[in-house]
């Protein structure tokens, strides 16, 4: 029983890393919106780059998620 508890606590702790990705995506989207507000013509390019950047930032959160899922379902 203790092992299961430790696994679940570990999975919860692993997800703390999502904070960084959340902050990163917030900064990214904020910057993109400011850019679009200043230069609406560049909206297309900014959007594409923003999605790329979000994908990179999100990947970090996904690593945490994979670690958490592995802890819950695989170990």
């Amino acid at each position: 029983m203790e092992a299961t508890a430790a696994k679940l606590i570990g999975a919860g702790l692993a997800m703390i890393g999502a904070i960084g990705a959340g902050l990163g995506i917030g900064v990214l989207a904020g910057g993109a919106v400011q850019g679009i507000a200043r230069n609406p013509d560049a909206a297309g390019t900014i959007q594409t780059n923003m999605i790329l950047g979000i994908a990179f930032a999100e990947a970090v959160a996904i690593y945490c998620l994979v670690v958490a899922l592995l802890l819950i379902f695989a170990v």
Binding site: A59, L65, L69
Partner: peptide, 16 residues
């Protein structure tokens, strides 16, 4: 690593 984990993590988490 990041390519495979990004797709796997997103879709596996989605199905869960």
């Amino acid at each position: 690593l990041s390519f495979s984990f990004r797709l796997f993590g997103n879709i596996f988490a989605g199905s869960v």
